[in-house]
Amino acid sequence: MADVDFHSKQDDSDLSLEGEITVPGVAKSDDELSTLDEPVKDTVMRDLRAIGTKFFHVLYPKTSKTLLKEWDLWGPLILCVYMAMMLQGNTSGQPEFAEVFVIYWIGAVIVTLNTKLLGGNISFFQSVCVLGYCVCPLAVALSVCRIILIANQTTALFVVRFLFVIAGFAWSTFASTAFLGDVQARNRKVLSVYPIFLFYFIISWLIISHTH
C-alpha cells in the first residue's frame, strides 16, 4: 500500500511538469503567420490591445491565469513613469522622480526574488509583470487624489483621499494575490503574500502623503 501511494505522488509531479511545458505563450505567437506582411498599425494595435486587456484583468480580477500567460513590461513602464511624474516634488523632503522609479522596480524585483527563493513556481518576469500591472488601482487612486488636491484642503477632503487610497491599496493587494497566490505552497502562502502587502503599502503611503 505504501509503495502505491508513493508512486501515485510521483506521477502527479510528472504530470504537472508536462503540463507546464505547453504553458508559455511563445508557441502561440509562432503559430500566427508572419507579422511582416501586415501593416504597422495592426501590429501596434494588437500590442496595445494586449496591454489594455491586461489592465482590464487587473481592474476586474476574475480569471487568474490570463495575466500570467504572456508577460510584457509595457504596462508597468507606463504606470511607473506616470506615478513617478505625479509623485515627484520639487520641495525638499519629497521623493524625486528617480526615487519613485527605483522604489517601484527594485520593490517589484525584491518581492519576485522573495517568491522565487521561497520556492515559488513562476518565472521571474511573469511575477514582475503581474506586480507592475497590479499597481493600476493605486494609479487610479493617485489620479483622483491629484484632482482633489486642486481644491482647498479640508479635513473632509483628506478623509476622501484616504478612503480612495485605502480602496486602491486593497484592490491592488487582492488582485496580485489572486494572480500570484497559487504559485506558492500552502504553508508558505503568508510568507509570500506579506512582501506584496508591504510593497503596495509603501506605494500607498507615498500617494497619501503627497500633498502638493
Binding site: K116, L117, L118, N187, K189, L191
Partner: peptide
Amino acid sequence: FEYYQQYFDVDSKQV
C-alpha cells in the same frame, strides 16, 4: 540560485 534557497526554507508557523 539553489544555494540561497536554503536560507529561505521556512514556513509561516516557523517564522
